[in-house]
């Protein structure tokens, strides 16, 4: 397998790659509108892409030159990306839910809430694993090793702050990644999950600061739209909590 799936880093400068490198849909439409003359050229490139979808893009778990794990491309990349984030969230909530002094630290009501969310996030994580195993067996992202700053689980303030950071990040990630998916069934599921994550985010925010749900740092004050982040921006933040280095540069490309 490794001799078919070349590490992405090694062939980046070869002449072959531009032919096979898929063009992001959005970029394609930008090009398409640029000039009439350029359109034919881009269209030719596009049609070439559609017949050679993922030729030289790494599958999940193949590593790049710097040792990063590639999340893969296309819908598989998006699913692996969501799977990575849900792994992180599920691990964090499971650790909180397992605290023997959780009820003392957080209060019984909040601790019970964390135990419920632990189940939601485990379900989301397992959902993505099951979907990937069925549709892209062999490209399923490995189980990651989350890491946390010292004292993350020792007091209420740190637990709530970490939960808020994860939920805000998760919602922004779904908001930014949904458009990268192409399969209708997965699109619907992204919609079904993002609002649940948004509910979690609102709850945590109201716990940290009452009335801070959907506040100006989460919902754009001019458009009323929730915050959205690209995979690369999300991974830059999430990377601090994941031992393995992840490469999401091909996520959603050329589905």
């Amino acid at each position: 397998m490794s001799d078919i799936l070349q590490p992405r880093g090694s062939d980046e400068n070869t002449l072959v790659q531009p032919i096979f490198t898929p063009i992001k849909r959005r970029s394609f439409f930008m090009y398409a509108g640029a000039t009439a003359g350029a359109t034919a050229l881009v269209l030719a490139g596009c049609s070439k892409d559609s017949t050679t979808p993922t030729v030289n893009l790494p599958a999940g778990n193949s590593t790049t030159a710097d040792g990063s794990i590639s999340l893969g491309s296309g819908d598989v990349g998006v699913l692996n990306y969501a799977y990575a984030l849900e792994q992180l969230e599920a691990d964090f909530y499971a650790k909180v839910a397992a605290l023997s002094n959780g009820s003392t630290l957080l209060g019984a009501t909040t601790f019970a809430y964390f135990q419920q969310v632990a189940k939601h996030e485990a379900i989301h994580r397992d959902f993505f694993k099951a979907a990937l195993t069925r549709d892209a067996n062999g490209q399923v992202l490995r189980a990651l090793t989350p890491k946390y700053p010292a004292a993350t689980f020792t007091d209420s303030t740190n637990i709530l702050a970490t939960a808020k950071a994860f939920e805000d990040l998760g919602v922004a990630a779904y908001n930014g990644a949904g458009k990268l998916l192409k399969s209708p069934a997965y699109l619907l599921l992204a919609g079904k999950i993002v609002s649940v994550e948004a509910r979690h985010a609102a709850y945590i925010r109201d716990l940290v600061t009452p009335g801070s749900f959907a506040a100006d740092d989460q919902v754009d004050t001019n458009s009323g739209l929730d915050k959205s982040m690209t995979p690369s921006a999300v991974l830059t933040t999430a990377q601090a909590f994941i031992t393995e280095k992840l490469d999401g540069s091909a996520v959603g490309v050329n589905a």
Binding site: V171, Y174, N175, G178, K179, A190, G191, V194, S195, V196, E197, A198, R199, A201, A202, F213, A214, Q218, V219, G224, L225, D226, K227, S228
Partner: peptide, 11 residues
């Protein structure tokens, strides 16, 4: 999708 998330927060 971004409006959906806002409605989830409201709810």
């Amino acid at each position: 999708l971004r409006m959906l998330a806002v409605e989830g927060e409201h709810s």
